[in-house]
């Protein structure tokens, strides 16, 4: 109910903003997080509800007053942990981790544009339930997720002559991980990480957030592998890169003796490779410099292998 009330207040404020003086920033967050663990029958449920809302004036420069909010929950079902951040102005930019964050107040140049308010909000509802049987093995698992993100951001005209507009930055992100490991509910829980930021804080956080999602991708890939499979992948990669280096050296010695690319020799080598079914891209034939060819081979181990395979055997092992 609190979530609905908060969003209703924001919506009302948004409507009223048309007649209000736009010299203030409204920034609200509302979060609830609950855990319920029962012994008989053995079950555990987690509920998470969060609202974030922001209503602020836009500026002629396209700037938006910076705010940042984040909430991070983790831990097991019996010892949940919550870490929350809420900051505005220069503190918001500093909290985003920006190296260029100003020490003083964040300047917003120009008069706030009357009747041109920015509205940005998110609502998130998450629920998870795990039931376990007598042996401790989860026999029922339910996960629900509901999320809304919305923004109303007037474009700011930067240059009247060239019709150049600025679209102010906002950023909202949520990252959830559910854990449901047997036995019992010891390893079970819900981990979530949520960000909400505007203006320079959003821009600074955007780079970090992309890194976070890259980490997730990597961990998802690693989670799909056994330690032996990962070791095998690393060993194969090491061998591939070593072979690529040797192949590239042999090819460059053959077509660029002395450091300058001999395009006739390159063409002859490409013809020989394609005659063996290589079907190499015309990009290789278009190369006119040794550096350009080396760059292509550096990024394409397969092409390096095919070209090296077309070299006369006397040239394949030269350094």
């Amino acid at each position: 109910m609190k979530r609905i009330s908060a969003m209703a207040a924001l919506a009302a404020a948004s409507v009223l903003s048309g007649c209000a003086k736009p010299d203030s920033v409204l920034f609200v967050t509302n979060a609830s997080f609950g855990v319920n663990v029962e012994g008989k029958p053995a079950s555990a449920s987690v509920g998470y509800d969060r609202t974030e809302g922001y209503l602020a004036p836009s500026f002629p420069s396209g700037a938006a007053p910076p705010v940042i909010a984040s909430i991070e929950t983790g831990g097991g079902l019996l010892n949940p942990k919550v870490r929350q951040l809420y900051a505005t102005g220069a503190a918001a930019v500093k909290a985003s981790g920006s190296h260029k964050a100003p020490d003083g107040p964040t300047t917003l140049e120009g008069a706030p544009a009357a009747k041109r308010m920015i509205f940005f909000g998110t609502t998130t509802s998450l629920g998870m339930k795990v039931a376990v049987d007598a042996s401790g093995t989860p026999d029922a698992f339910t996960f629900g997720y509901k999320r809304k993100e919305y923004s109303y951001i007037p474009l700011t005209k930067k240059d009247a002559k060239t019709e150049t507009y600025v679209y102010p930055s906002v950023l909202a992100s949520i990252d959830t991980v559910t854990l449901a490991a047997a036995p019992a509910t010891k390893g079970s829980g819900l981990t979530s990480r949520q960000f909400f930021a505007t203006g320079p804080a959003a821009e600074a956080l955007a780079a970090d957030t992309s890194a976070i999602f890259r980490e997730i991708t990597e961990s998802a890939l690693s989670a799909a592998l056994t330690p032996e499979q990962k070791q095998k992948a690393i060993k194969t990669a090491t061998e591939t890169v070593e072979a690529q280096r040797n192949n590239t050296t042999a090819i460059m010695n053959a077509v660029a003796p002395g450091g300058a690319l001999d395009t006739e020799k390159l063409k002859a080598l490409l013809d020989a490779a394609n005659a063996k079914g290589a079907d190499l891209s015309s990009t290789y034939a278009a190369q006119t410099t040794a550096e350009g060819l080396r760059g292509l081979l550096h990024e394409d181990p397969h092409a390096a292998m095919l070209l090296a395979g077309a070299l006369p055997s006397s040239q394949t092992n030269q350094d």
């Binding site: 890939l221 592998l225 990962k230 992948a233 690393i234 591939t240 550096h298 990024e299």
Partner: peptide
Amino acid sequence: PVKAETARQVLIRQGFPE
């Protein structure tokens, strides 16, 4: 996924930022 991890490792060894 094993081949994907191999490709990822190849890129890392080629100097692509992880």
